[in-house]
């Protein structure tokens, strides 16, 4: 793995290399270099399998973190590539030409996070939701509980407690849990 990172460092600006396990490494790369890095990994380093592509909403930094997980079937190494993109104008180059299933992931990201992938097939069609007219539901500022209570007629009588304080009061009324 170290050699691959060394080779990558010669061509691309990568940072935050973190070897999580023997067979799992994460690294960060700039948005502009991401697609060429992924193509390079696929074509020359035998990372031939796109495991998944997903996003993490880093709302406090006003950024989305995209994670491309690649797998090398020869060395059985997983490599996660983190790409930070702007949250306000979320847009990323598509990789559907490299893997067919990437188009599906991008459709989902477009729908659930509102990240656009121009050129990706059927990216604007709804994938999972139907007739959704709110902000994309997987964004951190979307409150699913509030939405559910406003929309779906919650049956009266359901109480929810904070488990910690509730258990403390019920099970250990005097002591400290």
């Amino acid at each position: 793995m170290k050699e691959i990172i060394q080779r990558l460092k010669q061509q691309f600006t990568i940072s935050n290399v973190n070897q999580q396990r023997v067979d799992l490494t994460f690294l960060s790369v700039k948005k502009e270099q991401a697609v060429s890095l992924i193509s390079y990994l696929r074509d020359f380093e035998k990372f031939s399998h796109l495991v998944f592509l997903t996003a993490v909403d880093r709302v406090e930094d006003i950024q989305f973190q995209l994670t491309y997980m690649l797998h090398n079937y020869n060395t059985h190494q997983d490599l996660g590539i983190r790409v930070l993109i702007d949250r306000e104008k979320a847009e990323m180059a598509s990789i559907h030409h490299l893997w067919k299933q990437a188009g599906t992931y991008q459709r989902e990201l477009k729908e659930m996070f509102g990240i656009d992938f121009p050129g990706s097939p059927r990216v604007d069609e709804s994938f999972i939701l139907e007739g959704w007219d709110n902000i994309p539901p997987m964004r951190r500022d979307f409150d699913t509980k509030k939405y559910s209570e406003e929309t779906y007629f919650p049956r009266p009588g359901r109480e929810s407690h904070d488990p910690e304080s509730y258990m403390k009061s019920k099970l250990y009324p005097e002591g400290d849990a």
Partner: peptide, 8 residues
């Protein structure tokens, strides 16, 4: 509390 499943 899910945004996509009905409650009743």
């Amino acid at each position: 509390d899910s945004y996509n499943t009905i409650n009743r």
